[in-house]
Nucleic acid binder design. Structure first.
Lengths: 332, 332
DNA sequence: ATGAAAGCGCTAACAC
DNA sequence: GTGTTAGCGCTTTCAT
């Protein structure tokens, strides 16, 4: 693999001149420029990014730290972050934490100090104080909700309002025994969505019954199916359910079908995330649709500005959402 | 950010000693070791991986080059590769090419020479000769089928046999007008699966009708739905369909349902990939299940051995598959 | 406009 | 066992 020095020798100039050409510096004597370009082509020179980074002090890498890639919401988000980062000439390092605190810690600890310029983190288990020690000095933007007041930029939708709207929709259908699936002891977003759920019930004058709120420690299809099965087995089963993500909703629909419960006739189902899977499922899912592209762009833009100015006070960006009504709540 | 030199100064030893401690070298005087460890803790020292890599000549990074993360098969595979790579202390750089030849080229050209030790590539548009110029010298393992005979390691299932078994299953159900969705002008795997499809029909004494073979330029749900809609609109619609991936199958099922065609009664559907989505859809999908964990492990292992010995002749690993029969072909 | 040379942080060969 | 030092490939003063 040819180095700058090799190219310089071949072109009969100094490394400085080659470096100037490679980096698009304007003032190079035309003759030298063309000789360098020839030498570049002849050697098939490729800059060693590691060496360049070492010298420049930045890496051109952005970490995207997510719980799980197999959750479609995160795959879709990753896709959008990749696009947004490209506009800023950032490469994205996708890291998976499996939703564990250790996974989140280790990832940041390993990459934080020197391999990445900044990080977008969708925390699931990490707490506020954890962040201080990790990745010291590197800009971090947090996705989703978090209980603690950490000094980082943050982007997310108004989960309380979103959940409230979703449940209000169920209420407007005349449903009275509305369940929720996805309560979680530590997840900030789960707490917010539960709050929205309760708010909507209260506004409708409906009682909030604990036995209608199902906890889900993971947000996979299986967890939705299991929770739904339990709810349906109860003496007074629900006539509607609000699931905290589309995967849970898909599982819930499946569990209902297996028990001969018809969706939406016997049970109306609302999901969250607006994944493509939900648009094609049978019945298609009514769901809260966060503007994922807006989230991805906001996160990357925030990071870009943060890199340029470390001292700015933390910013909190609220991205929009809409409720997409589909077959699972009785659309024709 | 503290450097090795800072730590050495604080501990009152040389950088060599600190480096020895950091890298777990055994022969360090206990007293020095403890002093270094203290200094390490006090400064919060983190090695600069870029600098280390520059010196060592390797990076500890593995590239996983895939068409699209939003295709569940690839997300699931990425997840497994991440796990397999961890066992070899490799970090994985997930790169998305969007299935374009330029995307595949650019990715390898940018990262190839210096940022990664090796790459796992699932090519969709790249041709054999492209690889020579790219990532010269870095080990590459190819996933899936490819027409051209390139000098790289390769892992994949026997797509002809898999498709044949899937279609034979449809034949065994008594279906006679068996369609295929997913033909593609350039994709190697598509060609293989089409061959298997034709083979199975021929073996059953069934005619191969061109009008029952639908091309899909992408393998998304939408493409499956569109292809199915066309097939169902024909004068003699199929009574079964073999889709080249689960996403196409999901789309096909949806299109059928929208036209009042019952699955599996009127139309039996088989997918490919055994994604979790297919296991929960209504009806659940019969599908070809490649052993994805085996693929991920084989790919990483191949790379490990290739890094140690560049001269070995290219190896081709065939991983197993099974047919998972579910509701979409009439399971009870 | 270009060359010479220092140095980013680290590892490893070589001394002691 | 540990210190000294060269050098990985690059960018960037500082001269000229």
């Amino acid at each position: 693999m040819a180095t700058l020095k090799d190219v310089a020798a071949l072109a009969g100039v100094s490394v400085k001149t080659v470096s100037n050409v490679v980096n698009g510096y304007a003032f190079v004597k035309p003759e030298n420029r063309s000789r360098v370009e020839q030498a570049l082509a002849a050697t098939g020179y490729r800059p060693n990014l590691g060496a360049r980074n070492l010298r420049r002090g930045r890496t051109g890498f952005l970490a995207l730290v997510l719980p799980e890639l197999v959750v479609p919401y995160f795959a879709e988000l990753a896709n959008l972050v990749l696009g947004a980062a490209q506009e800023h000439e950032w490469n994205v390092l996708i890291e998976q934490t499996r939703g564990t605190r250790d996974g989140e810690r280790d990832t940041l600890a390993a990459l934080g100090p020197h391999m990445i310029d900044a990080a977008i983190v969708s925390p699931e288990a990490l707490e506020g104080r954890d962040f201080g020690e990790l990745a010291p000095g590197i800009p971090v933007v947090l996705l989703g909700e978090h209980h603690v007041d950490v000094p980082f930029d943050h982007v997310g939708i108004d989960n309380v309002a979103a959940a409230r709207e979703a449940v209000a929709h169920l209420v407007s259908l005349g449903r009275t025994r509305i369940a929720a699936i996805g309560a979680h002891p530590h997840r900030g977003t789960a707490a917010q969505r539960l709050t929205g759920y309760r708010l909507a019930l209260a506004e409708a004058g409906l009682p909030v019954r604990d036995e209608l709120v199902a906890t889900a420690l993971n947000y996979h299809r299986r967890d939705g199916a299991e929770a739904m099965a339990r709810l349906l087995a109860s003496p007074e089963p629900p006539d509607a359910v609000f699931c905290f993500n589309d995967l849970l909703a898909v599982g819930a629909v499946r569990a209902a079908a297996e028990r001969g419960v018809r969706v939406p006739d016997d049970l109306a189902v609302v999901g969250f995330d607006n994944t493509e899977e939900g648009a094609y499922s049978l019945p298609s899912l009514t769901t809260v649709a966060p503007d994922k592209a807006a989230i991805a762009h906001a996160a990357v833009d925030l990071l870009r500005r943060r890199v340029d100015d470390t001292e700015r006070p933390p910013e909190h960006v609220r991205t929009p959402f809409t409720l997409r009504v589909r077959e699972s709540t009785g659309d024709a």
